[in-house]
Amino acid sequence: MAPRVAIIGLASDFGCQVQVTNMEDHLLDVLGLMDLSYWQLASSGHLPDEYDVAVIEGAVTTADHAEALLKARETAAVVIAIGSCAITGGIPALAGTADYDARYGVVYGDGVAVARGRQLPAPVSSVIEVDYHVPGCPIDPAEFVTVLSRAIMGLKDDMPRDPMCAICKTQENVCFLDRGRACLGLVTRTGCTAKCVTLGRPCTGCRGISPEANIPAARLVYAEKGLDPLELDRLFDLYNAAREVVV
């Protein structure tokens, strides 16, 4: 029997869900792998009481999100987090600084109370255990299919571990750091084919930190290249503001 899959969106731009629809050539084949129980973006219907796989997009930014996650973990045998928002807190976590409540005033003034139940933006793993991860902003649909297939077959989560630099070298890109421009390839988890650098833009760290990354050493490289070592941390905040900072 095909596993029953529910796709659940928290605080996000829906970009990763859109990426799932963006594999036009394979979309129907992929949907054939599963019994799609709930997908608000693409289908009418309510979140059912029972399903096997929860695919979670978005960061946790409200009490309702946290509650929805606890319910999903209780219901589903497998939880897959997709995208930076869900995995690292992503762009929403950029707002999660000490003055978080002051941001309400910047946007809404002192008028009517909306955005109720808001809490500091955080990754899904801050609330429940996550079994599988599809990193990136946005996700690569092919990687989503691979991870979904692994989850359905019961294989272990197999996120690439190396920093992005390794794959970038194989693309024969000219190194930004060698040209005195900040790039986060040194510390960011690989798996993306170094597309941004190939297209003329430095890595922005959207896939999160590589478990092999050596942050203090990377800061030294920045200093060697004539860059402010703390620029590495400032840039890495873009998608990883909710991380534990390495001193």
Partner: peptide, 30 residues
């Protein structure tokens, strides 16, 4: 839909990061 406070989020970031950030307002019309 949850507020993400984009208008406050860009404050303090560098001018060349603005489009990277605001692109994430929407995954459909980024």
């Amino acid at each position: 839909e949850a507020a993400r406070f984009f208008e406050s989020m860009v404050v303090g970031r560098r001018f060349d990061e603005v489009s990277l950030i605001t692109s994430r307002i929407c995954g459909i019309c980024s």
